[in-house]
Design a protein around this nucleic acid. Structure first.
Lengths: 113, 113
DNA sequence: TGCATATATGAAGATATAGTCATATACTCA
DNA sequence: TGAGTATATGACTATATCTTCATATATGCA
């Protein structure tokens, strides 16, 4: 990262921003291992149809997901395995943090007794 | 990621959002391998003092950086190696993408001649 | 060809956020 | 103790963004 230009960091910001929203993260969770249609993603995320469409446009623009059309259906999928690796790395890190925070809290509570 | 709750994804969003801004990425680039004072970070990033202070507060709140005080100086550093791993992974991915896009463009231009 | 379904887009409103300016706070030192 | 320096914070403005509602577009099928 130290060698990256400001322009490249701007692209990194766009990329990260595309995933830095709870609704879009739910979309990516739904798409984690397989492609799905807009309707399926709606069901799994609970997002409204037009809201979902806008978020999918953002993720597509950032090359996080891509799509193919089949009749009236549009099938979305994670754009490439790199994205999945990044998502898994970040999510594991945060999940570990939360778990560790809970453990610490329990230990503090135990010490009080 | 598939097993994560909505609450955890909300935390992931906060974490990603904290880094999804060009100014904060410049801060993280400055801090990549070593701790630095606010003044040093100002010099390296070009950010205004109060703007920098606010961004450092966001990064601290998201546990991306942490600090120690030494007299009037506040020394900031990346909070833990996990953060560096994530940053490097994401930056490498985007840099590769940009490099690949440039290569493709050159090949297209060669074919036109 | 018209209806039904799936999806994309424009407009509007509410909320979030980045940067600047001014000021407050903390610390050091002569 | 006051001046100087480093840093944090409040207030304000402009811009970005999320969600909803209404509507447009694309496709398939009877």
């Amino acid at each position: 990262m130290k060698t990256l230009s400001n322009e490249t960091l701007d692209q990194v910001a766009v990329f990260l921003k595309s995933m830095a929203e709870p609704t879009r993260l739910r979309i990516l969770r739904a798409l984690h291992d397989e492609e799905k249609t807009v309707s399926q993603i709606m069901e799994e995320t609970g997002a409204g149809q037009s809201n979902l469409s806008k978020h999918l446009a953002i993720l597509t623009g950032a090359h996080v997901v891509r799509f193919r059309k089949n009749g009236t259906f549009t099938h979305y999928r994670i754009a490439d395995p790199n994205i999945t690796v990044i998502l898994d790395t970040v999510c594991r890190s945060i999940a570990d943090r939360i778990r560790q925070a809970r453990t610490t809290l329990k230990e503090i509570e135990r010490e009080r007794r």
